[in-house]
């Protein structure tokens, strides 16, 4: 019988990605409800030692396919490796991060093993079904974030889902935990390498991961132009935060797309989110509504963003933000001199 929750913990350049740790944290809760175990799976080359770290984040078992054919991400060798893991271990649930790797690999594997796959989930829970017993209920935004849908996969195993990075919480790292790594051997042939990677170019500019920021000062169309972000950057610096953006500014070319918050961008949940000149379209709100404290500044007193804000300011952010930056500078200077 299919059992246990398998988390495909993504690695890049031999380092485990944060999303895998988040998924293991979430999986420990689901596993408790199911009375099953959490198994971390790492695919790569020379990753066995790094894979052991998954024990520290809550995995009960760790499985690897460690092979030079998996040194760099390629769809077919990874799909073959994971299919072999699924065939051998017969998991009940398989979870992936909804990254550009997870969303490439998961559908290919789901197709191959003929099971269901739910994309980009933001909520997972276990429900009791009259007909088939305990099931994974996979909740995700649909229709551009306008509605939420809960999806079931009743008759096929494993139940598979990709989960948005930044939505689930990782457990606190427990350095005392460790364990053995189970290696699964897969034979790779030249035919598996059905594409050729001519070049791999890593981003030279240090990419700021806005999902990691504790404070985000975010700009929308109301900041007036690309120079508006300079103003926000200065304010964010005083708060020890980063800048982010609505889709409108990315589409207008004012800022890079990696800073976009929302349905088609990133989901963030900082301690403080300051929305400047952002109207609050539902697609944007979908990406920031879990923020602890939301402050919105908008000229339009009926802007939808005020509906999800703890504090709303009706006014021009081009006037208010520079004044706020000054006030913060003064406050920080006083704090330092004390």
């Amino acid at each position: 019988m299919s059992k246990d929750i398998y988390v495909i913990a993504e690695q890049r350049d031999g380092k485990l990605a944060k999303v895998g740790k988040e998924l293991i944290g979430e999986a420990t809760k689901l596993a408790a409800d199911l009375g099953e175990k959490v198994v971390g799976v790492v695919l790569g080359s020379g990753i066995t030692e790094e894979a052991k770290n998954l024990y520290k984040y809550g995995a009960d078992e760790v499985v690897v396919v460690d092979d030079p054919a998996l040194a760099i991400y390629m769809t077919e060798p990874y799909a073959k490796a994971l299919t072999a893991v699924i065939k051998e271990c017969d998991p009940n649930v398989v979870l992936f991060g909804a990254t550009s790797i997870g969303r490439d690999l998961a559908p290919r594997v789901a197709g191959r093993v003929h099971t269901g796959l739910t994309a980009d989930c933001t909520g997972l829970s276990i429900i009791e079904d009259e007909e088939v017993g305990k099931l994974l209920a996979m909740t995700r935004p649909a229709f551009g974030g306008n509605i939420m849908a809960t999806i079931l996969c009743k008759h096929h195993r494993p139940q598979m889902a990709t989960v948005r990075p930044g939505v689930m919480a990782a457990l606190k790292k427990d350095d005392s935990k460790t364990g053995e790594v189970k290696a699964i051997k897969v034979e790779f042939t030249d035919a598996d390498k059905n594409v050729e990677i001519l070049e791999e170019v890593k981003a030279t500019k240090k990419i700021v991961d806005i999902t990691e920021a504790k404070v985000l000062v975010s700009g929308g169309r109301g900041i007036g132009g690309p120079e508006g972000f300079d103003m926000l950057r200065e304010c964010a610096a005083e708060l020890g935060g980063e800048i982010s953006s609505s889709r409108a500014c990315v589409d207008a070319g004012w800022i890079e797309s990696s800073r976009q918050v929302g349905q088609t961008g990133k989901t963030v949940r900082p301690d403080l989110y300051i929305a400047c000149g952002i109207s609050g379209a539902i697609q944007h709100v979908a990406g920031m509504e879990s923020s602890e404290l939301v402050i919105a500044i908008n000229k339009n007193d009926t802007a939808a963003i005020f509906g999800v804000s703890d504090l709303g300011i009706v006014g021009d952010c081009k006037v208010i933000i520079p004044k706020l930056t000054e006030a913060l500078k003064k406050y920080n200077a006083e704090k330092e001199s004390n």
């Binding site: 003929h114 306008n146 509605i147 849908a149 999806i151 939301v294 005020f306």
Partner: peptide, 18 residues
């Protein structure tokens, strides 16, 4: 293999002071 169990609109976060 998958089917929609239910769909719903999200609970809006309550508005604070404006």
């Amino acid at each position: 293999p998958t089917n929609v169990y239910k769909s719903f609109t999200k609970q809006a976060k309550g508005a604070g002071t404006v």
